[in-house]
């Protein structure tokens, strides 16, 4: 099962770099915020897959990361909403 987990995380890693293209090109700030949110979720899934290969303590890291990425994105969205352009 371990090679399968490694294969899946490599596929997701490529997906993260593809999503980085939208973050780079996105015409507006909110496109970049959306791309970062997508990258956050993919990184979360990669983290758990890697966690299943080595140590199971990565699940707590994934939980904390999910919370942090959620809070930061909502804060950025609210800031852009109130201040107009970033």
């Amino acid at each position: 099962m371990t090679p399968f987990f490694i294969g899946m995380s490599v596929v997701l890693l490529i997906g993260v770099f593809v999503a980085l293209y939208r973050a780079f090109k996105g015409p507006d700030v909110l496109d970049r915020v959306l791309a970062v949110s997508l990258i956050g979720t993919n990184t979360l899934v990669i983290l758990m897959l890697i966690g299943y290969i080595y140590k199971h303590t990565f699940l707590d890291v994934a939980l904390a990361y999910a919370l942090l990425s959620f809070i930061s994105i909502v804060v950025i969205a609210r800031y852009v909403e109130s201040k107009g352009k970033l």
Partner: peptide
């Protein structure tokens, strides 16, 4: 969290009239 993120970004986009 994904639902709330989607709503927050959509509202921000609508408010800054994208």
């Amino acid at each position: 969290s994904s639902l709330v993120i989607g709503h927050a970004i959509a509202r921000a986009a609508r408010r800054t009239d994208l």
